[in-house]
Computed example of a mutant assay.
Amino acid sequence: MAPAHQNREVDALTSLKSWEFLAVLAHGDGIERVAVEIESRESNVGQARRFVRRQLELWGLPEDDDLVDRVLLVISELVTNAVVHGRTRPPEETECVGVTLAFKRGFALGVMVTDNSGNIPKVTIRPSPSAVCGRGLVLVNAESDGWTAAPRGGQQGVSGKAVWAFFQCPQPAALPELLPQSA
Rank of each mutant, 00 (worst) to 15 (best):
G157Q: 08
V138R: 00
A12N: 11
L73G: 09
V45L: 02
V111W: 02
V111L: 09
E95T: 07
T100V: 14
F166W: 08
L13W: 01
I125A: 14
V163F: 01
N116L: 04
V74T: 07
N116G: 09
E63C: 01
Q155K: 13
L61T: 00
I38Q: 00
S76M: 06
V71C: 02
D145N: 05
V84A: 05
L101R: 03
G146R: 00
G28V: 05
S43H: 09
D64A: 07
Q156Y: 11
L78P: 08
V97Y: 04
V97A: 09
L139T: 06
P129Y: 05
L73M: 10
V36A: 15
W19D: 15
L175N: 08
R50S: 14
A149E: 12
P172F: 10
M1F: 02
S182P: 10
K104Q: 12
V24M: 13
R126Y: 11
V97E: 11
L175A: 12
K122E: 10
R89I: 09
S182Y: 06
A35H: 13
A165D: 09
G86A: 04
V36W: 09
V138G: 07
L78F: 05
A2Q: 13
A35T: 12
V83M: 08
T88C: 12
P180T: 03
N7F: 13
Q168P: 04
Q155I: 10
V52L: 05
R33H: 09
C96Y: 10
E63S: 07
A183N: 13
G46H: 03
V84Y: 13
A35M: 11
L178V: 11
L61M: 09
P129L: 07
R105F: 04
F167P: 08
W19E: 15
A149K: 11
E77R: 00
T148W: 02
G134A: 05
T124R: 07
K161P: 06
P90G: 13
Q156H: 11
A23W: 08
N81Q: 07
T80D: 15
W147Q: 08
P121N: 03
L13R: 01
V74L: 04
C133N: 13
V68F: 05
S18M: 05
N141F: 03
G46I: 07
R49Y: 15
L56T: 00
L139K: 01
D115N: 13
R105Y: 07
